[in-house]
Amino acid sequence: MAKNTSSSKGNTRHVVPHPDGWANKKGGAERASSVHSTKREAEAAAREQSKREGSELVVHGKDGQIQRKDSHGNDPKDIKG
């Protein structure tokens, strides 16, 4: 059986800097799903969509570096520790 080699980028939602403020983008997309004047607004919109999609939320800083991640799906159920 062949492995699924599709990228996992489509199963992420990103909050990134945008010329008009902050953008909520689906991973791998060129265009933003929405643009907001504040990072807080963009993150709230992205979090809502990420929860609906069961995807991972990735929040970036002004420099583009990842600041934090939050998973809204596909979490392992049996975590030891």
Results as ranks from 00 to 15, higher is better:
15 V>W: 00
15 V>P: 01
8 S>F: 05
26 K>R: 09
31 R>I: 06
67 Q>F: 01
74 N>H: 08
71 S>D: 09
71 S>W: 02
15 V>G: 01
69 K>W: 06
80 K>A: 10
50 S>W: 07
13 R>A: 10
45 A>M: 08
19 P>C: 12
41 E>V: 05
2 A>R: 00
73 G>T: 07
51 K>F: 01
22 W>G: 12
37 S>R: 12
54 G>L: 14
42 A>N: 13
26 K>D: 02
6 S>G: 06
71 S>I: 04
27 G>D: 00
46 A>N: 14
40 R>A: 15
15 V>A: 04
75 D>V: 08
38 T>E: 08
32 A>I: 07
28 G>E: 03
45 A>Q: 10
38 T>Y: 07
58 V>C: 00
51 K>E: 10
41 E>N: 14
43 E>W: 04
54 G>W: 14
61 G>Y: 02
10 G>L: 08
9 K>V: 10
25 K>N: 05
38 T>L: 05
9 K>I: 09
55 S>F: 05
42 A>Q: 15
4 N>I: 04
58 V>S: 00
37 S>Y: 08
2 A>E: 04
8 S>M: 09
56 E>G: 03
67 Q>T: 03
6 S>P: 00
58 V>T: 04
80 K>F: 06
57 L>N: 03
57 L>D: 06
14 H>Y: 11
21 G>D: 11
76 P>Q: 02
5 T>A: 08
72 H>C: 01
69 K>E: 14
56 E>D: 12
7 S>E: 11
4 N>A: 02
60 H>R: 10
45 A>G: 10
36 H>K: 14
25 K>F: 01
13 R>C: 09
52 R>L: 09
80 K>I: 11
38 T>W: 05
16 V>M: 12
76 P>E: 04
76 P>Y: 01
33 S>F: 03
53 E>W: 15
72 H>T: 02
54 G>F: 14
63 D>N: 13
9 K>A: 14
53 E>V: 13
68 R>C: 00
41 E>A: 15
63 D>E: 04
63 D>C: 02
12 T>S: 13
33 S>M: 09
44 A>G: 07
53 E>M: 15
20 D>I: 10
23 A>M: 10
66 I>N: 05
43 E>V: 11
73 G>S: 05
43 E>D: 08
6 S>C: 03
50 S>R: 02
38 T>P: 11
34 S>Y: 00
62 K>C: 06
50 S>Y: 06
77 K>D: 12
4 N>H: 01
14 H>N: 13
69 K>T: 15
51 K>W: 00
43 E>R: 14
43 E>I: 10
68 R>G: 01
7 S>V: 10
29 A>N: 13
75 D>T: 09
71 S>V: 08
56 E>S: 12
5 T>W: 03
11 N>R: 13
2 A>S: 03
19 P>N: 15
69 K>D: 03
71 S>A: 11
70 D>R: 02
48 E>R: 15
53 E>S: 12
50 S>D: 07
56 E>N: 11
26 K>I: 06
45 A>Y: 07
23 A>Q: 11
71 S>K: 09
68 R>L: 05
6 S>F: 01
11 N>C: 06
10 G>M: 09
47 R>W: 00
